[in-house]
Computed example of a mutant assay.
Amino acid sequence: MTVLWVVVGLCGVSASGPLMAASAAPSLAIAFWRNAAAAAVLAPLTLLRRRDELARLSPRGRCLAVVAGIMLALHFGTWVASLKLTSVAAATALVSTQLVWILLIDRLRGVSVPAQALLGSALAVAGVAVVSGCDFQVSTRALAGDGLAVAGGVFAALYLLAGSAVREEVSTTTYTAICYLVCAVALLAASAVGGVGLTGFGVRDWCLIAAVTVAAQFLGHSLFNHLLAVMSPTVVSLLLLMEVPCAALLAAAFLGQAPHLGIYPGLALILGGLVIVVTRRAATEVAAGEAPLTD
Results as ranks from 00 to 15, higher is better:
C246M: 15
Q137W: 08
G153P: 03
V100A: 01
A142H: 13
I102T: 02
S237C: 10
W79Q: 03
V286R: 08
F32A: 05
V138H: 13
A90L: 10
L227C: 08
H226Q: 13
L123T: 05
S87D: 13
L119P: 01
V286I: 09
A29T: 01
L223G: 08
A252I: 05
A31S: 09
Q257V: 10
A211S: 12
L118C: 10
Q217T: 08
Y180A: 10
L45V: 14
L269I: 15
L293R: 12
T86Y: 04
M20D: 14
E243G: 04
V130I: 14
T173N: 12
V113N: 00
C134Q: 10
G147F: 05
A252T: 10
G272C: 06
A89Q: 04
A65N: 08
A192F: 04
S27Y: 02
Q257I: 14
Q98T: 09
S191M: 06
Q116N: 14
V244Q: 04
C183P: 02
A31G: 06
R34T: 04
T92W: 01
A162S: 11
A129E: 09
A258V: 13
L181T: 03
L261F: 14
G153D: 06
G272T: 04
L57H: 02
M71C: 15
L161F: 10
V6G: 08
D52S: 09
L4P: 15
A37V: 08
F218R: 04
T2A: 13
N225A: 12
A29E: 01
K84R: 13
F201I: 05
A81E: 14
L54H: 03
S82G: 11
A15L: 14
T234W: 06
A165W: 04
M71R: 01
A156G: 13
V170H: 00
I270T: 05
G77L: 04
G110V: 11
A251Q: 05
R50L: 12
A43D: 09
E53C: 08
A189I: 05
W33P: 01
A177M: 08
F254W: 14
T92C: 06
N225W: 04
L227S: 04
G147Q: 08
L255P: 02
G200K: 06
R34M: 09
R107K: 09
E168P: 00
L64P: 00
D205Q: 13
S232R: 05
V275I: 14
Q217S: 15
F76N: 01
A142M: 11
W33G: 02
A73Q: 08
F136G: 15
A268C: 12
S237V: 03
L158E: 00
L123K: 07
S132P: 07
T140R: 15
L123S: 07
G12Y: 07
T284C: 14
C207T: 15
A184G: 06
V275H: 03
L223I: 12
F76L: 13
L42Y: 01
G120H: 01
T284M: 11
G127Y: 01
S87P: 06
D106K: 00
V154N: 00
K84S: 12
G272A: 14
R281M: 07
